[in-house]
């Protein structure tokens, strides 16, 4: 199976109750089987872009294609099998164990009244092993550190065995060590042929894992393309509205502002 593409063409969208149009004539092709980083200041429409792909909100005009098929043709369950989401504020109001929580990711593969079986538990345990969380399996979520908790949320999405993985600011509250763990997970998913898209405020993250970068400002795509072509000082300056420098240190490009 080829990795799925994500393609938006001529999409218009505004939140109900507002006159402000967020997107107008937005077109974007996200390449399959690679990692794409979406960068942009607060309010530029990064999260809304993910929500349009997931069908949480519907465009007033234009088409969203997932694996060459219009998004509306997918049922919720099929979307759940296709796309895994790690949202920004995933809250867990009850004190699930890590394994029970990761098992929730199997929901799109189960019928309405079905409970997870042995095969699902095996998938969940595989995912826990892949994400380095196997030793936490029986721990309760509320006893985890913030970093561990974020990894559990990602594991929950991976238990869906999605072919597209969307992460909304997956590293925003993490220390360097945990950031590294999350980036490794993203790299491994891409290596498996999963189309991975994440939003971030840190251009350096995009530089280190993304093959493709989308720069957004005020609901518009300023630039989209291979990372080394897009992450330039003029582009970033235009995106954030403050002077940004890109310098090369020990063979790596570092973004300074």
């Amino acid at each position: 199976m080829n990795p799925p593409t994500i393609s938006l063409s001529n999409v218009a969208f505004s939140y109900t109750g507002t006159t402000h149009t967020l997107f107008e004539g937005l077109s974007l092709d996200i390449p399959p089987g690679t990692t794409t980083a979406v960068l942009g200041p607060n309010g530029s429409g990064k999260t809304t872009l993910l929500h349009l792909i997931l069908g949480f909100v519907a465009p007033s005009d234009g088409v969203v294609l997932l694996a060459q098929r219009p998004r509306q043709l997918y049922s919720r369950r099929d979307l759940g099998k296709l796309i895994g989401l790690v949202s920004q504020n995933e809250s867990v109001p009850f004190n699930f164990t890590v394994l029970d929580y990761v098992l929730l990711g199997r929901a799109p593969h189960l019928q309405l009244l079905q409970t997870p079986g042995e095969a699902d538990i095996i998938v969940a345990q595989e995912v826990l092993a892949e994400t380095g969380l196997a030793h936490l399996e029986d721990r309760s979520i509320q006893s985890l550190s913030g970093g561990e908790r974020q990894l559990v949320m990602i594991a929950r999405a991976l238990a869906q065995r999605p072919r597209i993985l969307l992460l909304d600011e997956p590293t925003s509250h993490l220390d360097l060590g945990n950031k590294g763990l999350v980036l490794n997970i993203i790299k491994r998913q891409t290596a498996r042929g999963v189309t991975t898209v994440f939003t971030t405020h840190e251009p350096d993250l995009a530089e280190s894992v993304a093959a493709f970068v989308v720069l957004m400002r005020n609901g518009m795509v300023l630039a989209a393309g291979p990372t080394h072509e897009i992450l330039t000082a003029p582009n970033l300056t235009q995106t954030y509205g403050v002077p940004v420098d890109v310098v090369e240190i020990a063979g790596r490009r570092v973004i300074l502002s």
Binding site: L54, D78, P108
Partner: peptide
């Protein structure tokens, strides 16, 4: 779970 996560899980 919150609405977005529940929706993304196919519910």
């Amino acid at each position: 779970l919150d609405d977005h996560t529940a929706l993304s899980l196919g519910s």
